[in-house]
């Protein structure tokens, strides 16, 4: 298989990244080979999406001082 790449101009304004983590890469330039391996083991709680913060009791009326 023949693969031909034409790199014309590359101009970027802003790059904003929160995190590059667990065997990851952010590269501005050229590269030949990349091999990224990551093993991860975490308790199921960490994957549950949602809040465990106690919810306000439904019977409390609005404007009531709950403090």
């Amino acid at each position: 298989m023949n693969y031909e790449v034409h790199n014309w101009g590359l101009n970027v304004g802003n790059v904003e990244i929160t995190g590059v983590a667990s065997s990851s890469i952010f590269l501005i330039g050229d590269n030949e080979t990349i091999k990224l391996t990551s093993f991860y083991d975490t308790p199921p709680d960490s994957y549950i999406v949602g809040s465990l913060v106690p919810l306000r009791h439904p019977t409390i009326e609005e404007g009531t001082d709950n403090g």
């Binding site: 970027v12 304004g13 802003n14 790059v15 904003e16 990244i17 929160t18 995190g19 590059v20 983590a21 667990s22 065997s23 990851s24 890469i25 952010f26 590269l27 501005i28 330039g29 050229d30 590269n31 030949e32 080979t33 990349i34 091999k35 990224l36 391996t37 990551s38 093993f39 991860y40 083991d41 975490t42």
Partner: peptide, 28 residues
């Protein structure tokens, strides 16, 4: 023009330039 990165962690890289070969391993 501008780059803003909050964090780089656990076998990671941010590079301004070329890098031929990358072989990275992270176990957590």
């Amino acid at each position: 023009e501008n780059i803003d990165v909050k964090g780089i962690s656990a076998s990671s890289i941010a590079q301004l330039g070329s890098l031929n070969h990358i072989d990275s391993v992270s176990r957590i």
